[in-house]
Nucleic acid binder design. Structure first.
Length: 269
DNA sequence: ATGGCGTATGGAATACGA
C-alpha cells in the first residue's frame, strides 16, 4: 500500500463551500493524500466527518477564521505534524507531516504563500513585502538537511516562475506573481533547498502549463489566460519515484469551481 | 478587458484574492 502514493494539491477557496467538488475529485481521482489551501475555515468547523466517511481518517489541519488555511487529508497515517507560523503574524499558511512510503517515510509540506497584493513594490505595498519575507524565511528554514531525505513540498506558492507558466510573459512581467524579484527569489528557495520542480519534469519548459484561471474571464477556457501558481517540489532522494504529474484542468469547469485546478502527483517504487 | 468575479464576514459594505 505504501509503495505507491497518489497525491493531490488544490487551492479550493473555501473548503466548506467546495465539499461537493472535493467529493467529486475523490470519486474521479481517488487520491491517497489531499493537500488543500485556502480552506477559510476555523479548525473547529472543519468538515472532518465528510473526509472521514470518504476514507481520509488522518488529518493535519491548520486553519483560521475567514482567510488562508491549509489541511492535509490522508488515507495513510500522518505523524510528526508541524505547523509553522511564518513571519510570526499568526497566519495559517503551512502544515507538515510524515507519510509512510517504501518502508520509511516522506516529509510532506503543504504551503499557502501570500499572494502579495497589487503593487510589486514593498516600499508602498506591505503585502508584497510580506510575500518576499515569507519566501526568504522558507529559504532559510528549508535549506540543508530537510531535502537530504525523501520530501515533498506542495501548495499554492503564488509565483509562476517560468516564461510558459503564464499566458503572456511580456504582459505579466510587472504583475505580482511573475515579477523578476519574485521569480528569482522563488528559484533561490527551490535551489537552496535542493528541490526539483516535479511538474516541469513531465511538461517541457516550452509548453504552456497553468493551474489557475481568473474568475473574471467571461470564458476562462477560451481566453486561457492562466498562470502556474500551484507547485509540486520533490527532494533529490525522492526524484526516482515520481511517476507523473497532471493538472486536472477539467475541475476548473466543475459546478461552483475554485479558480485553481488540482494538481495530481504519483509516486511509486 | 489583469479585473469584467467570488468568498467571508455579518447582516451592508468592505477586505481580499492574483
Amino acid at each position: 500500500m505504501t509503495d505507491r502514493i497518489k497525491l493531490v494539491t488544490w487551492n479550493i477557496n473555501s473548503v466548506r463551500l467546495r465539499m461537493p467538488i472535493v467529493e467529486q475529485l475523490i470519486e474521479e481521482v481517488a487520491p491517497d493524500v489531499i493537500c488543500l489551501q485556502e480552506t477559510k475555515c476555523p479548525d473547529a468547523n472543519f468538515p472532518e466527518n465528510a473526509f472521514r466517511k470518504a476514507g481520509y481518517e488522518h488529518m493535519a489541519i491548520h486553519g483560521q477564521k475567514g482567510y488562508h488555511g491549509v489541511a492535509t487529508l490522508s488515507k495513510l497515517p500522518l505523524s510528526n505534524i508541524e505547523k509553522r507560523d511564518f513571519c510570526q503574524v499568526g497566519d495559517s499558511r503551512h502544515v507538515a507531516a510524515d507519510v509512510p512510503f517504501n518502508g520509511s517515510s516522506i516529509r510532506l509540506h503543504n504551503f499557502y504563500v501570500p499572494a502579495g497584493g497589487d503593487e510589486p513594490d514593498r516600499t508602498i505595498n506591505p503585502k508584497f513585502g510580506h510575500k518576499l519575507d515569507f519566501m526568504a524565511e522558507m529559504l532559510g528554514w528549508l535549506k540543508g538537511e530537510e531535502t537530504s531525505k525523501p520530501a515533498i513540498l506542495v501548495g499554492d506558492l503564488n509565483v509562476a516562475p517560468y516564461e510558459h507558466d503564464v499566458w503572456s510573459h511580456k504582459k505579466l512581467l510587472k504583475v505580482v506573481s511573475h515579477t523578476p524579484v519574485e521569480t528569482e527569489l522563488f528559484e533561490q528557495v527551490r535551489e537552496a533547498g535542493g528541490w526539483l520542480d516535479a511538474m516541469r519534469q513531465f511538461t517541457p519548459l516550452d509548453e504552456k502549463l497553468y493551474t489557475w484561471w481568473s474568475y473574471r474571464a467571461k470564458d476562462w477556457s477560451a481566453a486561457d489566460k492562466g498562470r502556474r501558481l500551484d507547485h509540486v517540489w520533490v527532494s533529490q532522494p525522492l526524484a526516482p519515484y515520481v511517476k507523473g504529474t497532471t493538472v486536472l484542468r477539467d475541475a476548473r469547469g466543475w459546478e461552483k469551481p475554485s479558480d485553481h485546478a488540482p494538481v495530481i502527483a504519483e509516486f511509486a517504487i
